[in-house]
Amino acid sequence: MADLVGWWDDFFWGSVVVAQVFFASLTMMVLFGLLGAAAKLSNSRVAQKVAAAYTVVFRGTPEILVLLLIYFGSAIALTSLAQLYDPSIAFVDIPPFWAGSFAIGLIVGAYATETFRGAFLGVDPGQIEAARALGISGFKTFIYIQIPEMWRLALPAFGNHMLSLIKDTALISIIGLNETLFAAEQAIGTTGKPFTMYIVVGCIYLSFSTAITLTVMMLEKKANRHLEGAR
């Protein structure tokens, strides 16, 4: 504990960055997941093929590879674009925060695609027919009937996707994001206590995972409250 004096604030700000990455990538994950599920459930053969390729590619390649490809790939593309205007520019990159959030949002979005697809298919068609019979518009049916119904079915798997997201944030330190692992490396450089510092990082992630698990349990209870007493 004595070794940690003076480093708490670094770890705290690192955790704040982890939380920020989490929410940024969560938004993208939901977006990509819904788009992917919509494409898979659509009647367009092309959209189905594209979505199938998306899930196969991002579920079959290591996360670190996708992350490095997106970060360095975009940096090269941006640099060569910038050099068209000003040849003296040496290096332009997307900030690691956004490259990283985008990469893990994209990866976990591939898993979320399958979850959302399955959940939409799990919604009883009778519910949609009933809504139509009541004269509710297609859009309103989607928002007020299909989304809440599918949300209940998707929640358990969705919780696991959120856990994957939070754990994947650790990878972004590889492209130089100032998060908890990065703080630990700096602390190790000064104190020479790698075990202590990395255990602190482990504890931070364990707290995040616990918070997510508890939140999902609460959400599940809320989503299933209309079923209580029906069993």
Binding site: K167, T169, A170, L171, L181, P194, G202, Y205, L206
Partner: peptide, 14 residues
């Protein structure tokens, strides 16, 4: 509950 990367670092560097 913890990232595999952190586990690797704890074992190798820690």
């Amino acid at each position: 509950g913890t990232p595999i990367l952190v586990q690797i670092f704890i074992i190798y560097y820690g």
